[in-house]
């Protein structure tokens, strides 16, 4: 379960303060599929980084499964990220000059899985997002933008996380490939995972059960989606 209590995030550079999140509160239960919408620069990615235990709020409290993340040590946070969370970055953040397969298998290295199992699970995750096997041994900088996006999604899926956070996961994909990704998310959702995705597109948001809209660092609406668009794959 995710609980955000009056979360504020202010960036300080020199004597200029930029308030980005201005007191955001909400709760997301286990197994929910939530879309976060909002205009560019409204603070969506900033919020997502906090939810993913990658960044800390300036004030307010973020509780993951009842535990306040601010109380956890650096190594405990690493364990949370390794065991519970799958994160798809808006800018992918792949390891450069490293093969697609190795990129996807990387989280499993830290989870101490044996090498053949790592490769098998990485290959399965890549296939789930529609990556062709012929690209598995290409270097991460020798594939298209859409392929990079799918590698980033596969890497988030590979450790079978209970919480999947995806920042604009379909931004670079055509409708058909986008649907494969959304279908995969829905399947994970059906098997009980919690999924939070950020998107600009109403079409993508319609696949979620709940839609939160933020603007200028504040929640402007938080509604249930009456007509969930379902994709079967």
């Amino acid at each position: 379960m995710i609980e955000c209590i009056a979360i504020k995030k202010t960036y300080v550079s020199g004597d200029m303060e930029t308030p980005v999140l201005k007191g955001v509160s909400f709760t997301i239960n286990d197994g929910e599929f939530v879309a976060i919408m909002g205009p560019s620069g409204s603070g969506k990615s900033t919020l997502m980084h906090i939810l993913g235990a990658l960044d800390t709020p300036t004030s307010g409290d973020y509780k993951l499964d009842g535990k306040s993340v601010a109380q956890l040590s650096d190594d405990e946070l690493a364990d949370v990220r390794k065991n519970k969370i799958g994160f798809v970055f808006q800018s992918f953040n792949l390891l450069s000059r490293t093969s697609v397969l190795r990129n996807v298998a990387l989280p499993l290295v830290y989870a101490e899985l044996p090498e053949d199992e790592r490769d098998a699970r990485a290959a399965a995750a890549l296939k789930a997002v529609g990556m062709d096997e012929s690209r598995f041994h290409h270097l991460s900088n020798q594939i298209s933008g859409g392929q990079m996006q799918r590698v980033a999604i596969a890497r988030a899926l590979v450790n079978d996380p209970s919480l999947l956070l995806a920042d604009e996961p379909t931004g670079n994909l055509d409708t058909r490939t986008g649907d494969i990704v959304l279908g995969t998310f829905q399947k994970l959702h059906e098997s009980g995972r919690t999924i939070i995705l950020i998107t600009h597109e109403p079409y993508v948001a319609e696949h979620a059960d709940r839609i939160i809209t933020i603007k200028d660092g504040e929640i402007v609406s938080d509604t249930k989606n009456p007509h969930v668009r379902s994709i079967k794959i």
Binding site: D74, D75, A78, D79, R81, F87, N93, L95, S96, P107
Partner: peptide
């Protein structure tokens, strides 16, 4: 370049000691 790599490795579960 290496700092970004370190950020990524930490983001996917690497500990400081790793």
């Amino acid at each position: 370049e290496r700092t970004r790599e370190i950020g990524l490795r930490k983001a996917i579960g690497a500990k400081r000691a790793d």
